[in-house]
Design a protein around this nucleic acid. Sequence first.
RNA 1: GGAGACGUGGCCGAGUGGUCGAAGGCGCUCCCCUGCUAAGGGAGUAGGCGGGAAACUGUCUCGAGGGUUCGAAUCCCUUCGUCUCCGCCA
Length: 430
Amino acid sequence: MHDIRTIRDNPAAFDAALSRRGIDAMSSDILALDEQRRLAISLAEAAQAHINGLSKKIGAAKANSDNELFESLRNGVAKRKKEIAEQHQLAKQLDSDLSDLLMGIPNLPADDVPEGEDEDDNVEIHRYGNVPNFSFDPLEHYDIPAIRPGMDFETAAKLSGSRFVLLSGAVARLHRALAQFMLDLHVEEHGLTETITPVLVREEMMYGTGQLPKFGEDSYQTTNGWWLIPTAEVTLTNIVNGLTIEESYLPRRYVAHTQCFRSEAGSAGRDTSGMLRQHQFEKVEMVSITAPEHSDAEHQRMTKCAEAVLEKLEIPYRTVVLCTGDLGAGMRKTHDIEVWLPGQNTYREIASVSVAGDYQARRMNARYKPAEGGKPQFVHTLNGSGLAVGRTLIAVVENGQQEDGSVDLPAALHPYLRGKTRITAEGALV
RNA sequence: GGAGACGUGGCCGAGUGGUCGAAGGCGCUCCCCUGCUAAGGGAGUAGGCGGGAAACUGUCUCGAGGGUUCGAAUCCCUUCGUCUCCGCCA
């Protein structure tokens, strides 16, 4: 959602920013609609003011028992009623037209987002660890002997269909350990507030964070109208929906471990093997609510929080800035963290850390009262994975695999496995 | 799931069709007075949208959305939420 006044003040800058996303100039259409709207509002309000004035006189006439005056005024007002209603209707329609138009326009990319068409134009900004040399051909996660017994796609398909998985034994345990490890890290070392949220939400919340109106087919809806969250970004960010909070209360930093649900419509045929892309998966999600002047620094901070998970797990990764062509609609800037997967011999996305600026806050009407006084302002919102649990599991086992089919687990996880350190080629946690 | 009650400004709380954006209290801000770890007096204290250089001004908002009416916080409908009792249940 964009600020009409910003567009009014500098339409050229707005169009220029849109063009970076490959969108044609819209400001002249927007401003024309805005002008009609404001004219309609003025007319409707002037008419209403007139009526309100008469109504007071009618009230006074009634109080003075002046029936003649009362009746004549009353009739006069009644005549104009229809006309007033039409003016109101027009003003309202134009106002909602404008709002719909603005709602459908994606966020403007930050100035330092690189130009580009697609993911090939993303720019690497950070790299950690060395791509390991294996003395054997490393396997994909689902082929590793240690993992195979605990990762059952056939049974999951029987239960639910494709793109589901049944984890058991050592793999299930490892999955749980990873989630616990991530939460503890973010809570104890990064100072985030641990949160458990609903995973079913009302429709308005999906508008607040931008999944709706455009991307409804990516998510699931229940028969009574709830939506299953595709990410805890939805619940965590909407905590401040409709609120005006004191600046002293900022920043708010949340972390939650939830199930996430995605229809994966449009990704048919992509990543169909293994548990890289599922309809249901677990993610540890971070969300920050900040004052505008702190959101860039918060973006850096949050990125480091996500990177720290992989560094503690001693897994190589690189961080890229998404280019204009790859940037999500609601975001000003996004860092993707891509983890090294030896089985695929490539880096794959494992986390996405984004700053939305005031884009979501406008939709949610989430504001703060500046400490130095003055009018409430929209907050800035940020969200990031910290991390996707299933994908992290893939990274851990692919990077830890041994020639004999066993998997060595990173030291950071040992406490979460009660001192166990590896999964044998037979699938036993020892 | 059944029955009922309720939803007012930062908080508490009046207000059941007419000058109510809304008494009163608390809190907070500023000013005055006061010389003792306090009290008293005065003023101010929501937001959205529109007009205006500004002062200021119009309009809308009493959970939300509709409706009745010349006029609604007050009446009607829908919806969301809270509470109580019953039922059910992890």
